[in-house]
């Protein structure tokens, strides 16, 4: 029997820990409160009244819908590319031994380890040097590059737990490589890929720094948001959009958590 832990924490520690979590969550709660405020001209607290009218106003805004659709399209395609490339890379790194494995890991992590502005400006100057016009596809290109790492991290963690003897057993029973992949490997890594894909989606959906450099005239939802932050035009609409964005990113994070919680909790280790 282990009796080696005192079960209750010192009061000071408790206060500091709960205070720290409150510091993280109060601003998020405020976003939810402000979406209902009747105040249009300022950020007055406490709100003079509560209303639902701004949801209707936001619903009728074509520019918000256009930005939202673009963001979803970009995130979907970038996630699909990242899923393929990240899984291939994870399979190579975890299932085989070769010279330079460490370098590959570093290469995958680099786009997210270096500040976003460096990735952004590097891509921008490369596009303009190669005379590639900025478009939907240049945004996707940038997003896919830094989404690979999220899928890769999740897939590598799961591959480590898939026992090699399962794969050998499948081969011994006469399955070829593709059948083994389809019936043995994929069911084992499926939830990790789903979790990685969701986090990649959330990452791309929220990305603003690289997008400001690789986007042309189109504005994704974060770009729309950034313009509102710099030059506020209609605060109540921004409040509502902020709340919706918050909710849209919460769902994949929660889903990813439930998909990977039984394993090593790698889902979000390092954005």
């Amino acid at each position: 029997m282990r009796s080696d832990r005192s079960t209750s924490a010192p009061l000071g520690l408790k206060v500091a820990a709960i205070g720290g979590l409150a510091f993280l969550h109060i601003p998020i709660l405020l976003i939810f409160l402000y979406a209902f405020t009747t105040e249009e001209k300022s950020y007055q607290f406490p709100p003079p009244g509560l209303t639902l009218q701004w949801f209707a106003v936001t619903w009728d805004r074509p520019d918000v819908w256009a930005a939202l659709t673009l963001s979803i399209k970009v995130a979907t395609i970038a996630t699909a590319i990242a899923l393929v490339l990240g899984t291939l890379c994870a399979a190579a790194v975890s299932q085989t031994r070769f010279f330079g494995r460490e370098t590959i890991s570093l290469l995958v992590i680099l786009p997210i380890a270096l500040p976003g502005i460096i990735t952004g400006i590097a891509l921008r100057s490369a596009f303009s040097m190669a005379d590639i016009p900025f478009s939907f596809w240049t945004i996707v290109l940038g997003h896919a590059t830094f989404c690979i790492v999220v899928v890769y991290n999740n897939a590598v963690a799961r591959f480590r737990r898939v026992s090699g003897s399962l794969i050998e057993a499948s081969m011994d029973l006469g399955a070829d490589g593709f059948q083994t992949f389809r019936h043995v490997i994929l069911p084992n890594i499926g939830t990790a890929l789903l979790a990685g894909g969701m986090l990649a989606f959330a990452l791309s959906f929220d990305e603003v720094i690289v997008t400001t450099f690789t986007g042309g005239q189109q504005s994704t939802l974060p770009i729309w948001m950034l313009e509102e932050l710099i030059r506020p035009r209609q605060r109540p609409v921004t409040n509502v959009v902020a709340m919706v964005v918050m909710l849209v990113t919460f769902l994949p994070i929660l889903a990813a958590y439930y998909l990977t919680r039984d394993g090593d909790q790698i889902a979000g280790a390092g954005k």
Binding site: L24, P27, I28, I31, D206, V208, L229, V245, T249, I253
Partner: peptide
């Protein structure tokens, strides 16, 4: 409690 603020939208956090 740590993951949600970490992953939630960067711009919305600044806006808050």
């Amino acid at each position: 409690g740590v993951m949600l603020p970490l992953w939630s939208s960067y711009l919305v956090k600044i806006y808050a």
